[in-house]
């Protein structure tokens, strides 16, 4: 079996300027904090980021900017596709200054559009957003009536790279998530050309029994060491 573990620096080298990148995480929980820290210092940019939110200033590990908020702060992001950015005031400021393009999608549609992207589906029919500004969204393809109820056809979301974080990740990329860090990583791992999984703890193959594997190694291309922790 192929050992997919590489150093964090090497993972960052695989990320080109201008890439479309999915980041697992919800308000920073489940962000790949170590890899993002390295990417923030890399000088790379022009990214399109697909992430539930833009995280926030502060946060529990004592950083000035938590998780992907670092990339926003460093102006490495030209476009952000998200569901909620209210906790990171830099997003609104950069958008108003014309430095950042923002696309907002309802959170359930967002998750399902990524799932569709990874599952080979042509889109999602959801009742969410009917009669709202979501109908004008670039990813909304109009209404479809099924059995008398209106749904919005939302296009699938895919990316060049997905950067996810697990708690235990084995050396070939099987992932076990702790608590709520699973959030969007589970679907994002299926929807990108290249998937990098940061591990709080890298473990041996077999340490995660097959019944407990939450993201299969077949989706994961590279494994990098993370922050460790309890």
């Amino acid at each position: 079996m192929i050992n997919k573990v590489i150093p964090v620096k090497e993972a960052v080298e695989k990320i080109p300027d201008g890439a479309t990148i999915m980041f697992g995480g919800f308000m920073g929980c489940g962000n790949a904090h170590r890899l993002i820290g390295e990417l923030a210092g890399s000088g790379k940019g022009g990214f399109t980021i697909i992430s539930n939110d833009a995280s926030m200033p502060g946060g529990p590990i004592g950083d000035e900017h938590y998780g992907i908020a670092k990339l926003i702060h460093n102006r490495q992001v030209k476009k952000l596709i998200a569901t909620h950015v209210g906790l990171n005031p830099e997003v609104a400021a950069q958008e108003q200054a014309g430095e950042l393009e923002l696309v907002l999608i309802p959170q359930g549609s967002f998750a399902e559009m990524i799932r569709a992207g990874g599952a080979g589906l042509g889109g999602v029919l959801t009742p969410t957003g009917v009669g709202t500004l979501v109908e004008e969204n670039p990813y909304a393809e109009g209404r479809v009536a099924v059995d008398g109820r209106d749904y919005l056809l939302m296009k699938p979301l895919t990316a060049d790279i997905a950067i996810i974080a697990g708690y235990y990740v084995d050396k070939i990329g099987n992932v076990w998530y702790k608590g709520t860090m699973r959030n969007f990583s589970a679907v994002m791992a299926t929807a990108a050309d290249v998937v990098i999984a940061e591990a709080a703890h890298i473990v041996e193959v077999g340490d995660i029994v097959p019944e407990n594997v939450m993201t299969s190694s077949i989706f994961v291309d590279y494994v990098v060491p993370g922050l460790g922790g309890a």
Binding site: M27, H33, M56, E112, T180, M181, V187
Partner: peptide, 29 residues
């Protein structure tokens, strides 16, 4: 363990015994 477990407000949290953690697509499903 705020790095790994938060509620929908981003605050430190935990599932109670008998509860479960799920991914976002399942959650909105």
């Amino acid at each position: 363990d705020q790095l790994h477990i938060v509620d929908a407000g981003g605050q430190p949290s935990i599932a109670r015994p008998g509860g479960s953690y799920i991914d976002s697509a399942t959650s909105f499903g």
